[in-house]
């Protein structure tokens, strides 16, 4: 065996093999930590946006839907953010597995750790309203963000299912004119009766809103509930003080 060890030492000398410096391993460990922290942070942001859309869609879910709530629910799930969230969790788990002592822990514990970190950061982001700002920034700066990531665009573009969204173009006596997400005009007949006097704000020209209601006829929509597009903390129904209460047409559910 002494010959063997001399042979190996000879190869080490001939090929000028040297031990890798400590810095190499510190750099490797640092990169691993950095990737875990970064993915946890990004996972947290993704989670906060899932919460944003979930809270937002709650507003629509509690409202009766002519075509059924399941139909509306399936349209309102933020699939893209869910996929990104789970991809990031998988990435965190994959990197955690490469830590020196990770093998001592069962896989489910590593996965829970990955989830826990992102969920905590997600709730913190929601706490200071960061998720709303992030969503607005992405909507402004990222091409195709809306159609792919903004779950509201799909679910609130369903007037036949009692969900409409768009921008207020002008105000009238009985309501306002809305330019929907496709640029079509709607006459919105405002029903003030259902809005509580507490914590209501006035709808404004140029404001983006979502509306729960009923399609009366082509181009006419009865608004039972009007809310700001960006959502808000707590109840925040929009009302139109200058509108007179119309006679509510009778519409039957099928």
């Amino acid at each position: 065996m002494e010959n063997f060890s001399n042979k190996v030492l000879e190869i080490i000398k001939q090929k000028a093999i040297k031990p890798r410096p400590k810095l190499y391993f510190w750099a490797r460990d640092f990169v691993l930590w950095f990737l875990v922290v970064l993915s946890t942070f990004l996972g947290g942001l993704a989670f906060s946006l899932i919460i944003l859309f979930a809270k937002f869609q709650q507003v629509g879910l509690s409202y009766p839907r002519p075509l059924g709530k399941l139909n509306w629910l399936l349209a309102s799930i933020p699939y893209a953010w869910l996929i990104i969230f789970f991809l990031l969790i998988s990435f965190i788990y994959f990197n955690l597995k490469h830590f020196r002592k990770s093998y001592k822990y069962p896989a489910y514990l590593l996965i829970l750790t990955s989830l826990f970190g992102s969920v905590i950061i997600g709730f913190i982001t929601v706490g200071f309203d960061g998720h709303r700002q992030i969503n607005e920034e992405f909507s402004r700066r990222v091409p195709f963000y809306g159609p792919v990531f903004d779950a509201r665009l799909n679910s609130w573009d369903r007037p036949n299912n009692g969900a409409l969204a768009g921008k207020v173009e002008s105000m009238g006596n009985s309501g306002f004119v809305l330019n929907d997400l496709h640029g079509h005009e709607w006459q919105i007949i405002f029903n003030n009766e259902n809005n509580s006097s507490e914590k209501t704000r006035e709808v404004k020209i140029g404001q983006k809103v979502i509306i729960n209601g009923w399609p009366v006829e082509s181009g006419v929509f009865l608004a039972e509930e009007v809310l700001p597009w960006e959502g808000c903390r707590g109840p925040c129904h929009l009302t139109c003080p200058s509108c007179s209460s119309p006679n509510k047409p009778k519409i039957e559910l099928r």
């Binding site: 060890s5 190869i11 031990p19 890798r20 391993f25």
Partner: peptide, 16 residues
């Protein structure tokens, strides 16, 4: 074993 010992030598600074 030759490969093993060369690997061990290269990674001595990584030994915990």
């Amino acid at each position: 074993l030759q490969d093993v010992f060369i690997k061990v030598y290269k990674n001595l600074n990584d030994f915990d």
